[in-house]
């Protein structure tokens, strides 16, 4: 099924940093994604919302290459990258975080960031043995930058801690700062604020807006519509594996189909809450 009801992209929106067309994915007969079609405008913060089981995380897994799709196409900028492996998509500057934090538990917080540094000469054994000074110099620069990123995210004092020893909230910040260390052009955040306290939600929201200010395109799955309202410029609604609507949250609230599929109950909950 194609996504006919999707309105044509508004002419005033910037070009797409990331787009997909007719993505499908079935898990043993269950159609988790069923023709998802949307574009993520460059330089903006876009929310991917929808009821539970709408296929949001599956879409993020497919877009980031962590999972292959059965049909459809994906583009990063103008390049078609459908079903490219994760590491090749990542090298185009697309980074993702995970819904449940997945820290590299045996490494320190600082090392978690260093792993993400792009283009390390020291990942070639030839360089390790034949050009040690180049490797050392680059490592020093990466350490400096990683410490700066940790400082920004308030993790500097935890730099030498084993990543598995962090608290849940700290792990959320580590996920984001690790992706930032890779200097991404596009950032996919899978529920960056799920299960964290209000103060931290505030703080993560601030970090996302800071990233936007540096030109990073952000696509985030988010359930909290207050957060979406405040920090997201653009919203994509997913339901039953297909794109239901795209636009500004304010306009979507007036879309009967969207309200029926998803917003109704949430708006009720949030106005009463």
């Amino acid at each position: 099924m194609t996504a006919d009801p999707v309105p044509a992209p508004d002419r005033t929106t910037p070009r797409a940093a990331l787009s997909c067309d007719g993505i499908t994915k079935a898990f043993q007969g269950v159609r988790a994604v069923n023709g998802a079609t949307f574009a993520v405008p460059e330089g903006l913060v876009t929310a991917l919302i929808g009821p539970n089981g709408a296929g949001k995380t599956t879409v993020v897994n497919i877009l980031s290459g962590s999972m292959t799709c059965d049909g459809g196409t994906e583009r990063v900028g103008d390049a078609e990258v459908t079903n490219w492996p994760s590491h090749r998509i990542a090298r185009l500057g697309l980074m993702r975080t995970f819904q449940l934090s997945r820290e590299l538990g045996g490494l320190t917080v600082l090392e978690n960031l260093l792993v993400a540094a792009p283009g390390q000469a020291g990942e070639s054994l030839l360089n390790v043995f034949l050009r040690p000074s180049l490797v050392r110099r680059q490592e020093r620069e990466n350490v400096e930058r990683a410490l700066d990123v940790l400082d920004t995210y308030g993790l500097f004092h935890l730099r030498d801690n084993r990543a598995s020893d962090l608290s849940g909230g700290q792990k959320k910040l580590l996920e984001i700062s690790r992706a930032v260390m890779a200097s991404p052009r596009i950032l996919l955040l899978d529920e960056p604020m799920a299960g964290v306290n209000p103060a931290l939600i505030e703080r993560i929201g601030g970090h996302i807006l800071d990233l936007k200010a540096t030109g990073v395109t952000v696509l985030m799955i988010e359930h909290n519509l207050n957060v979406v309202e405040r920090i997201c410029d653009h919203v994509i609604v997913l339901a039953e594996g297909r794109t239901l609507a795209t636009g500004r949250l304010g306009d979507l609230r007036e879309n009967a189909e969207v309200v029926q599929a998803y917003l109704g109950e949430v708006i009720d909950a949030s106005t009463h809450g």
């Binding site: 994760s86 590299l104 538990g105 045996g106 020291g122 990942e123």
Partner: peptide, 19 residues
């Protein structure tokens, strides 16, 4: 850094690929 990448894959290969 190569050794660090080895350990990253040991700890979580999906994350390492995403990086």
């Amino acid at each position: 850094p190569q050794g660090r990448t080895f350990r990253a894959i040991r700890d979580d290969d999906v994350v390492a690929a995403a990086l």
